[in-house]
Design a protein around this nucleic acid. Structure first.
Length: 327
DNA sequence: ATCCAGGAGTCCG
DNA sequence: CGGACTCATGGA
């Protein structure tokens, strides 16, 4: 039996050839009921957990006693896992019965993508020698990775939901959306959810989402994106072929409801593109305002100047800046 | 109450 | 193209 990788799932594990950055090879061991994945020497599971644990309203995973729980789905097959560090390796445990071997490989690849384990951050850390902002961030949060979202529908929806509202309310909206329309699995008195599929959301009316306190616009945007993906007008597989940040952005911005910020954010969260940078993000300028002790938020021009020093490492810098906000 | 929040579309010159 | 206006809802 051949297991196909769904089109919009699992980023190709091969890395962008034109990238000048070093990459690590994936390494993992299969122990049936769990797998162990090699991680870079500097990898900090704890720092990634701070990012992933930034909201107590997060519905798509749980963190308990430093252990991470999430429901995965490969081609219709649900896999409930927990993740923890064990002897400098990432240990992923299958909480229900161990899935067939191809799915254990997919799980390893999923983690590799989610924690961006392929990127060698040596050059990023070296930037700290010449950039005081990077130095401050790296000193504090070394080992934090760019935590990715595999599902492009989820990534775009989450960005749309987050437009122009505070993060707390954004998490509330996501929770309502997922609880209302996402698949649910129960395990030991806990519930775990999948992000809703484009198919399910495409069937909704604007009114359905208005009841969840979505604005009319956001409801239209989310349903619209669902239709584009459901009909195959947009596929992640096709988007992955575009390695140029600007060109990828141009394609995303054509989607109704996706402006500059949403496109930048989606690329950062869902694609392995090294100059993705949501320059209009209020989180970024709030962090910079705080770090640089500015009286007012920095202008786009000022951020552009700063970010030139970060060329090729904008995604990492963005995550480290966001991390600074969670102190 | 007032301002802001991990904005986008539209219109107008 | 760039700016002003509109939409829209909870949090602090």
């Amino acid at each position: 039996m051949v297991y196909e990788i769904a089109q919009n799932k699992i980023t190709d594990i091969k890395f962008c050839k034109e990238s000048t950055q070093k990459t690590f090879e994936i390494g993992w061991k299969d122990y049936e009921e769990y797998i162990e994945i090699d991680v870079p020497e500097d990898f900090s599971f704890e720092q990634c957990m701070v990012y992933l644990g930034r909201s107590d309203t997060e519905i798509l995973h749980k963190i308990e006693k430093g252990e991470f729980y999430k429901l995965l789905n490969f081609d219709g097959v649900n896999i409930l896992i927990s993740i923890a560090m064990n002897l400098k390796k990432l240990k992923v445990t299958f909480l229900e019965k161990a899935p067939p071997k191809p799915f254990r490989l997919l799980t390893a690849k999923y983690m590799w993508n989610m924690f961006d384990l392929g990127t060698d951050l040596t050059q990023f850390y070296k930037l700290a020698e010449t950039d005081s902002i990077i130095k401050l961030l790296v000193d504090k949060y070394k080992g934090l990775r760019v935590v990715k979202t595999d599902d492009v529908f989820e990534a775009i929806c989450w960005a749309i939901i987050g437009q122009q509202i505070n993060l707390k309310f954004a998490y509330t909206l996501k929770k309502r959306l997922v609880e209302s329309y996402g698949e649910r699995v129960e395990y030991k008195n806990n519930e775990y959810f999948l992000f809703p599929t484009p198919f399910v959301i495409s069937k909704l009316e604007v009114e359905d989402l208005k009841h969840l306190q979505f604005t009319i616009r956001k409801a239209e945007y989310v349903i619209g994106v669902a239709n584009l993906l459901k009909d195959g007008i947009i596929t992640k597989k096709e988007l992955l072929l575009e390695k140029n940040c600007e060109k990828l952005k141009q394609r995303l911005v054509q989607i109704r409801g996706v402006g500059n910020w949403t496109a930048d954010y989606t690329i950062l969260k869902c694609f392995d593109i090294k100059d993705a940078f949501p320059i209009a993000d209020v989180g970024i300028y709030n962090a910079l305002k705080g770090i640089l002790k500015l009286d007012e938020k920095p202008s786009i021009n000022e951020i552009e100047k700063l970010s030139k020093n970060w060329n090729g490492w904008q995604p990492n810098t963005t995550f480290y800046l966001w991390r600074w906000l969670y102190e």
